[in-house]
Every structure is written in C-alpha cells, then in structure tokens.
C-alpha cells in the first residue's frame, strides 16, 4: 500500500514523540535526558542549552531526528528573524569608495545553518524549497526586497557567511535505516560565538517525490553564563554604574602599573 510522504511525516512525529529520550532506534548518539530539548517530532538536541562563559568560542550541537525512510532530509538551525538596515558602499565623485546609502531587508535571520542529506537541487523543485525557506533562495524571498535591496541579497549572504552566521552544507546529514518506514537522521551544527544569546529553532524537513514538509521542530538555547552573564547584565541594566566601574577599574589598573613598574613609569618620556 503506497504511503504518502505527509502520512509518513505525521507518523514520524508520533513515533519520535513517543521514543524515550536518550534512546535512538538505530543506535545513534544518545542525548542525556536532562539536557535534551523538549522535542516535537522525535528530535533530540544535544546540548539543548549552551552556556556562553568567558571562554566560549562557539559550540557544536548534535541533532538526531526520526524521519520517513527514503526521504531526503534538511535540517535548519534558525535564529530570530527581524528587519536589518545596512550601509551600502559606492563611489562618491566617481573615485572614493564610501557608504553612500542605507539598504533595508525585511526579514533576516540572525543565524541560518542548513544541513542536507543530498544536494539541494535534487531534493525538490525550487519553488517548494523557496516556499519552505530551505536554501538561500527562500531566504531571499523573505528578506526583501526592501528599499534599495533588490540586487544586494548576495552581498548580505557573503557578509553573514564571513561571520559563519549563515552556512549551507549539502550532504552533511547522515541517514540510517530504523525499521521499514523510518530512518534516523543526524547532523552537527557549529554555532559560532557571534550568534547572539537566545533561542534557536531546529527544524527538520523531509522531501520525497517533489513533496516536502516539516517533520518536527526543537530548540537550542544559547545563554550567557558566569562572569560573562554578570558583565552583560550589568552593562545592559545598569549602564551608568557599569561605565563608572569600568573607568574606575581602568584607573586602578593604571595606578597598579605605576606601583609594579615604579614611579618612573610615565607611559611617556
């Protein structure tokens, strides 16, 4: 009896949702229950909470999901979406390169990391991918065009890629059979340190015979911790006090330097 993709997607959600946390049907990497994100659609995220302390340089987040067998899989780690205004560089007086205009984009995610099991172009028709915002074409459709942004989405993409905030990796999702109708899809997302603290959605898509849909969704949270959190909170909520303290500590360090290196330490000549 033929089974449609949508039916399988629904079944995967039910199956995955019922699967005990920390156990994966195909023996994939298990997520500790205490650290696993609240999963919908059988998605495990490890770790579900990423602490950003003083020595945080980014983190690798492992994601596993129960998906329909024989489907091509895409997983997206998605940040908050908001309007973004950037400076556009152009030539002034025909010679000097400088900021010449503001460029506005309507919906731009802070973070967009896409991992797929196959090449994107072979997974579904471009319109399907665009509708689901799987791939840069879908992002472009949502991003604009705002005033002056018609031809600059490519530049926005390059800017985001430079900071490792947007990234597409085809073939980076491993899919292993887990029974007749299901499989286990796994991938790793590298969260860059530049990704701001907050909640990031992990969305899993399945594609088959040109159809596509969301298998399930989970979350990973990046939160500042320890001294970094203390400093950040002070800076945001008590700016004046923070500024005075920063200046006073700097003066004290300067004086300490004079003591350590002797009073002849003038910082000049």
């Amino acid at each position: 009896m033929p089974v449609t993709l949508m039916a399988l997607i629904a079944a995967a959600a039910v199956f995955g949702g019922a699967a005990p946390a920390g156990q994966t049907p195909a023996g994939g990497r298990a997520a500790p229950q205490t650290r696993a994100a609240p999963a919908r659609g059988g998605i495990n995220v490890d770790p579900a909470v990423v602490p950003a302390g003083m020595f945080y340089v980014g983190a690798t987040v492992h994601v596993s999901a129960v998906v329909p067998a024989d489907a091509d899989i895409a997983m997206v780690c998605l940040g908050e979406t908001h309007a973004l205004t950037l400076k556009k560089k152009g030539k002034a007086l025909g010679v000097i390169w400088m900021n010449v205009a503001d460029v506005s984009f309507e919906q731009v995610p802070d973070l967009y990391l896409l991992r797929t099991s196959e090449r994107l172009e072979g997974m579904a028709e471009p319109d399907v991918l665009k509708t689901l915002a799987v791939g840069y074409d879908g992002l472009e459709a949502r991003a604009g065009p705002g005033p002056g942004a018609e031809t600059l989405f490519g530049e926005l993409t390059r800017l985001k890629q430079r900071d490792h905030l947007w990234d597409v990796a085809e073939g980076a999702v491993a899919v292993q059979p887990a029974g007749n109708e299901f499989a286990l899809a796994t991938t790793d997302f590298s969260l860059p340190a530049k990704a701001p603290p907050g909640v990031y959605r992990i969305v899993v898509y399945a594609f088959h015979d040109g159809e596509g849909g969301v298998v399930g969704e989970s979350r990973v949270r990046v939160r500042q911790a320890g001294l970094a959190a203390l400093i950040s909170t002070l800076a945001v909520e008590h700016g004046l006090l923070y500024g005075v303290l920063a200046a006073l500590i700097a003066v004290a360090v300067g004086r300490a330097r004079g003591v350590v290196f002797g009073l002849g330490s003038k910082g000049g000549h």
Partner: peptide, 20 residues
C-alpha cells in the same frame, strides 16, 4: 576609550610627579 583610561592614568600620575 576604556583601555586608554588605564594607560593614560598611569602616565599622567608619573608625569605629574615628575613635574611635566
């Protein structure tokens, strides 16, 4: 600006003591 406060405070103090 914040880090320059430290560098310049040390230098200012030492220069002040040297009368310069």
């Amino acid at each position: 600006s914040n880090q320059i406060v430290a560098a310049s405070s040390s230098g200012t103090y030492a220069h002040a003591r040297a009368g310069s």
